[in-house]
Structure formats: C-alpha cells, structure tokens
C-alpha cells in the first residue's frame, strides 16, 4: 500500500487571517517525515488540512489521487494525534480505546495494552482525570496502535516527561519497522528528534520553505572556524547563516555545500570545517529578520 500524499497549492484563511499560503509538496512512500516550524508557523493548520479537520480555502490535499476532505476511504486511513486535553471524556483508558477501535480497521488492542504497560498508564482512572503526561501517553498509544497507513503526531510529545518521550521515540521507530507506514512527526524541538527523520519539511509563516532528505539537509551547511581574517576571506560571497567572534577566532556558518576546490582552499587557510546541526540550520532558516 504505497501512499502518495500530494498537496497542491494549499492555502488556508481564518477570518481574514492568512494561515497557510500556497503550500505544495509530495510525500511518497513509507517514511518518517519531520515537519518543522516555529510556534504559530502553521504546522497544526497544515496537518489539520491533511487530516480533513478543515477544508482548505483553496488548493487540495490528495492521497493516492483521492481528495482527503470528506472522503470516507481516505479519512479512515489517517490518524491525527494532537496533544489536546481530554477533559470531556469519561470512561477509562481501555474502554475509551475499545470504543474508538471500531473506527480503525488495523487497531491492535494487544499492542495498545503492551504500550499501556510501558507508559505505566493507570487503567483504573477516568481518562479526563489522567495527568497531562498520561493523557499525552494515551494519545500516543492510540496513534501507534491504530496502525493507520498515515499516522500524524502533532507535537504529541509535549506533555510527556523525558523518559516517556524516550519510550515514545523508541516505539515509533520499532513499530515503523514492523509495520512500515507514513509517519509524520511535527516538532519545534529538533535536536531530540532529528535523527528519526528520513525527510524533513520546514514551514515558516505559513509557507513551505524546505523539503529535503534529512541527510542531505544536514549536509547542506558547513561551519568554518579559524582566524578572523582567514574566515572572512573564505566566507566572502557565500550565504552566511551566522557569525560569531571569540577573541581572535571566528565561527561562521554557511549555507550550501563546498566544492573540492573550496575544501582545499579552506585547508590552505588553516580553517576547520564541520557540519552544522539541523537545529542550527532550522533556527537560521526561520529567523524573523531574514530577508
């Protein structure tokens, strides 16, 4: 079941506020995708369109050529997990999951029970009375055990503490290997999750500014360290993301790969080259004062 998700010029307006502008992308194959964006960049809105929670003002999102909005076949295959409060849900966790498993043809109750044990989710407490972290865990369990061909976690980890997040990451990867599917993880905390992504999409101010293979993206920036004058000489004319001077040493981050010749040149100037992290790249790509 290869699922191809195609967004075609998706725009979204809420009460005259432009939330998404002309977003197009294609996600092909069973991969783990990272959707990165700052708070308010439009991550949740974009995912809401994908999950048919909202109809785009213009443009469309289709899965294998079928429009998502109000399409029973497609909607059944998408689970959209958000870290929302469940204060109006009574009933205990297992009952709650059993009820909604009716709607998910692939729901694996055994797996859900194993996850309940791993997350130490109390099964004798009403869902609405669970702590924030436990509600987050419950959301995560539902998202994983539903085994939907398109599984979306929208900052689903927010309420979890570090050990719970660790379990969550591990389970996402394990279950992805056992049951390959399209998994989309949105986050603004990148360093913790970046190694999980195969492809990365970056959204900023309602626009898609980057869609790239994660390894390629990590490779698309270079940090240059050395004496101030030498660094200045080397980075002149290049796309500089960040510069920092400490005494006589300068660190510059540049966007774009270096040619063999440039690497030799850097060596001659006695500069140290290194990669830059996805986190750094993200911060600089989504800076407010960028051109």
């Amino acid at each position: 079941m290869p699922h191809k998700i195609k967004a075609d010029k998706v725009s979204l307006q809420f009460q005259n506020k432009q939330v998404l502008t002309n977003i197009s992308f294609e996600l092909e194959g069973e991969k783990i995708y990272g959707l990165l964006g700052r708070n308010g960049a439009g991550k949740t809105s974009l995912l809401s369109v994908l999950a048919a929670f909202v109809k785009p003002t213009s443009g469309s999102i289709a899965v294998d050529g079928e429009h998502v909005f109000e399409n029973a076949n497609v909607m059944e295959q998408i689970v959209f997990i958000r870290d929302v409060k469940m204060d109006d849900e009574n009933g205990k966790a297992k009952k709650y999951m059993k009820d909604l498993s009716i709607f998910r043809p692939n729901f694996d109750m055994d797996y859900a029970e194993r996850l309940i044990q791993r997350f130490k989710l109390p099964t004798d407490t009403e869902v609405s009375k669970l702590s924030r972290g436990m509600q987050s865990a419950l959301h995560a369990i539902i998202g994983l055990a539903s085994r939907c061909p398109i599984t979306i976690f929208d900052e689903a980890y927010l309420g979890m503490d570090a050990p719970a997040r660790e379990i969550f990451y591990e389970e996402v990867l394990n279950d992805f290997m056992e049951h390959p599917r399209t998994i989309i993880l949105s986050t603004h905390l990148i360093s913790e999750m970046e190694s999980m992504f195969e492809e990365v999409l970056i959204i900023d101010q309602g626009q898609m500014i980057m869609h790239e293979d994660a390894e390629t993206l990590r490779d698309s920036g270079v940090s240059v360290t050395g004496a101030v004058e030498q660094v200045d000489l080397f980075v002149n004319g290049k796309h500089i993301l960040k510069e920092q001077v400490l005494g006589g040493t300068k660190l510059a981050m540049i966007y774009g790969q270096l040619s063999e010749q440039e690497i030799e040149e850097a060596k001659a100037l006695k500069l140290t080259l290194g990669p830059i992290t996805l986190q750094e790249l993200f911060i600089h790509l989504t800076k407010e004062d960028k051109q």
Binding site: A52, E70, A72, F80, L100
Partner: peptide, 16 residues
C-alpha cells in the same frame, strides 16, 4: 462540539 470532534478525529466523515 465534542461529538463531531470525536468522530472526525476517528476518521469519520461529517456526512456519516
């Protein structure tokens, strides 16, 4: 409110 949210969250269309 809560009812339509529950159903759409579980992949049910507004029509259903």
């Amino acid at each position: 409110g809560a009812v339509i949210k529950y159903y759409v969250s579980n992949g049910v269309t507004r029509l259903d």
